[in-house]
Write a protein that binds this DNA or RNA. Structure first.
Length: 308
DNA sequence: AACCAGGACACAA
DNA sequence: TTGTGTCATGGT
């Protein structure tokens, strides 16, 4: 390790590296409900990608990354964080309207990750009608009980990889329910079994068009349009996939159809496909985060609810 | 103490 | 095709 000090910034064979990137906010990106097993420790974030433990920290030079073991190649992390995406180019494709301007202005540095498809699929099967904190808890129990240990630095506690489809498929429904996932347990179990028996091959989806890939995901039990679009967006990088959950439904109603009584979910869905352009998925994430954290009517509602 | 959460599904009309 | 009840569990 002596040689590290002699190596230039961005050295590729040590335990750490720096990605020189701007407009990348780790808090908003890792804590915004697209990934569920990153933990904030002070100003740093710790997580596991594949079999690798990682610690990320914002510095003036960019994003500082620390792994548990020396790396010759950081491509896996660069891919996960989508470092090469020029976010300014993406933002430029958003519709130029008031709601989008507000969302973009208040979520500067929000990015989309590129997660491993199986982990993403399993996580979002567990997400239905759950709050983000609860999804994190369920996923944590699952990885702790059925995921392989990964190497961590001495100072850090134990960490686990996300359990394989094979391992989940070998669980009983009772064991899965014990991870607090309730009625989602049979969905996850059957989905894992379908993957193990190769009824649907997740790798194959990468070469398909959006609608074809979506049709394959919809074959899994517990996967409807919304969860399929989450996996297409966060796991496969289809930038046009536009998950419509309860938050986005409210956002589109309030921001784009104010004082209009009958707006059906079908109309909202059609509007979402038409209005937000080739990077609609990114736009969706900005609206989602904006509604959850900054939008005033949301905060007012929350305040009035908690004081009554 | 009702109401809600990054929904999906079976079933009715 | 569109509308309702149900499914666990925990937070506000």
């Amino acid at each position: 390790m002596q040689g590290l000090a002699l190596m230039p910034d961005g050295n590729q064979s040590g335990r750490t590296t720096v990605f020189p990137v701007c407009d990348y906010d780790l808090d908003e990106t890792l804590g915004s409900g697209q990934a569920f097993r990153w933990q904030a420790h002070g100003d740093a974030w710790e997580g596991v990608i594949g079999e690798q433990w990682v610690r990320l920290q914002r510095t003036t030079a960019g994003i500082h990354a620390e792994a548990a073991a020396p790396q010759q190649d950081w491509h896996w992390l660069e891919e996960f964080l989508q470092i090469k995406v020029n976010i300014a180019d993406v933002l430029q494709t958003f519709p130029d309207d008031e709601p989008m301007r507000r969302a973009v202005a208040s979520c500067r540095g929000l990015r989309l990750l590129r997660q491993e498809p199986w982990e993403c699929l399993a996580s979002f099967i567990l997400s239905s009608t759950k709050q983000i904190v609860q999804i994190r808890e369920i996923v944590h129990l699952l990885t702790e009980r059925y995921g392989q240990h990964v190497i961590t630095p001495n100072k850090s506690g134990p960490a686990h990889a996300f359990p394989s489809a094979e391992r989940i498929a070998a669980c009983s429904e009772t064991e899965l329910r014990a991870c607090k996932m309730g009625f989602r347990a049979p969905y996850l179990l059957k989905t894992a079994q379908m993957i193990v028996s190769d009824v649907v091959n997740l790798e194959d989806l990468k070469s398909l068009a959006l609608s074809e890939a979506r049709a394959r995901l919809l074959l899994f039990p517990g996967v409807g349009r919304k969860i399929a679009d989450c996996v297409l967006l966060f796991g496969y990088g289809f930038p046009q996939a536009f998950p419509v959950d309860v938050w986005i439904m409210r956002a589109l109603r309030e921001l784009y159809f104010p004082r209009k009584r009958k707006v059906t979910p079908q109309q909202i869905l059609e509007f979402s496909e038409r209005h937000f352009g080739p990077n609609g998925g990114y736009a969706q994430q900005y609206l989602f985060h904006y509604m959850r954290t900054k939008h005033t009517s949301n905060n007012r509602d929350k305040a009035s609810r908690s004081t009554q």
